[in-house]
Design a protein around this nucleic acid. Sequence first.
DNA 1: AAAAAAC
Length: 696
Amino acid sequence: MAPYDKGARQRADDRVRHPNGTPAARSSKHRGFRAADPSQPRQKQRWDAEERRGRSAQGERPARPNWEPRDGGQRRDDRGARGFDRNDRGARGYDRDDRAPRRSDRDDRAPRRFERDDRAPRRDDRDDRAPRRFDRDDRAPRRFDRDERPQRRSFDRDDRAPRRFDRDDRAPRRFDRDDRAPRRFDRDDRAPRRDDRDDRAPRRFDRDDRAPRRFDRDDRAPRRDDRDDRAPRRFDRDERPQRRDDRAPRSFDRDDRAPRRFDRDDRPQRRDARDEARTGYVPADDVKLEKLQAEATIAADVEGVSFTDLGIGGNISRTLAEMGATSPFPIQAATIPDVLAGKDVLGRGRTGSGKTIAFGAPLVEKLMEHGGGTKRRMGRAPRALILAPTRELALQIDRTVQPIARSVGLFTTQIYGGVPYGRQEGALERGVDIIVGTPGRVQDLMNKGKLDLSEVVVSVLDEADHMCDLGFLEPVREILSATAEVTPHGDRAQKLLFSATLDAQVASLVSEFLHEPSVHEVAGEDQASSTIDHRVLVVEQRQKDQVLEELVAGDGKTIVFARTRAYAERLADQFEDAGIRATSLHGDLNQSRRTRNLQLLTSGRVNVLVATDVAARGIHVDDVSLVVQADAPDDYKAYLHRSGRTGRAGKQGTVVTLVPRGRRRKIEGILENAEIEADLVEAGPGDGIVAELAAR
DNA sequence: AAAAAAC
């Protein structure tokens, strides 16, 4: 056991205890708290000191003992000490707080235990099912605070493993789920809707309008002039104009490049890249930048086209409509016919352009064709696999794909790490049709003989370029190798690769696993058609934290990206100390906390999330108005993905990147590769520009 | 170099 665990235990021992012997809840909002509950959670943007002291029930930020007064003077020291406590408290302390009281709850429920077992599985179902809600309603009275329910769920989740076996009994229920699936989303995260938003027509159509503007990049010229007004703040003004000048032609270059993409010039390079990947050689940036040849779909061409026109069946089309996808977006219109035709497909659509449905809908349709009478056969092996680089993204994808699958009687299951095996293994034993997961656990279950991929005839890699990164590539290769080569009908099994930054980095996978793939992208999807305003602030290192605090103090939802887990945690801590409702998301948190913390942002209970790059790709949160990069991204791809968390659904977004003086060149290179124009402006605490950006 | 992804 790690040393800090001892510390946590010690602290727990120091804690006030309940009559039942468990540590007392520190918060009045906690179930385990016995005193009268004086305050309901507030929806205000800020907490005062007292609230902060007692808000542990909010979860994320570890609780500080109520009796431990805090003031500015103590802050630093406390923070230092907390750094340690934090992880413990975060994960353990917090959970423990939840559990202790729960156990008492359970004691109360002792007679109901059997019911409980039943419930556990439902919770799983809950992810997808309305009925559960009713269960929840029933439970509500038991809880002291409704606000705590989300915590419970996650908690329950951890416990679910053993209960899973009950699930078998519920099989019949599952079918009920089909009808309810769509509702589920309303409840939990609304995730599907979010996806819908990603895909919403308005946006795309806007793009249509914007596509032509692309050429107007010169329109930006006026902007630049505007910026010229800000000139005094800029760094190296001299260089800027030049960059911009280069860029205007660039957009045209892009068009010129189109023909290049059609050239099969990439192929030799792919082979090289593959060899390089095998030898552990990391391709240089310019190799990654190499555009894959792609067929560009023009948004205007898909106007008036329906999912049915593309070959999607009635049930699925109706479900898509219920989810808000009434008509296909360009990337969907581009890739769906080819997927239905049985081809391998590479799809590049920018962040929030509807990629999930672009592969999800035709995948389900395709399984219907393949499926025949094997549907719902107990213990049937999965026939489709969707892999994503993070657990949160896998969950989000499942929230979109599951209702589509259910609409035609197919089942999905999530296979990802950080949660008990039992439930996942149980689902596999019962039989599922579509696996949505992350590479590690999929590989794990495969090796344990619990997951048979030999009948998988459609495999999808979301964020495919990232899945080719060191550390991902080998597991992914192993997994893909375990899938079927041909369908029962003798057709070639399909592989679909999608990403907003799909490039030659996937070359090795393509050459090894894909057969004459069709490559699609959408015309006009460049930064000039984006709704995102990019800014770069050049700050003194020692002033950075203060500038960050000022930036996130605004009212809008904000995601802050930090390079390391420790820094993310520290920043979240600092923001909380400043009275800003903030939480964190990174790999040092256990999965229930990760899920919960993300939920805190989506639900609006906090409006600042400090994350590592775990949140950079694919994660959709409604109405994020500001993305702050506390540390510059690694490369232009990271920049594009991080910034893609805002400006979604056609809304305005702002991305602010902080860089120390010494890193100016690096960020300029990144911006150039990303084909983004942004001024570098010197800024410090209290500066007008900081306040202006914070106000967005 | 860090982060992610299995335990």
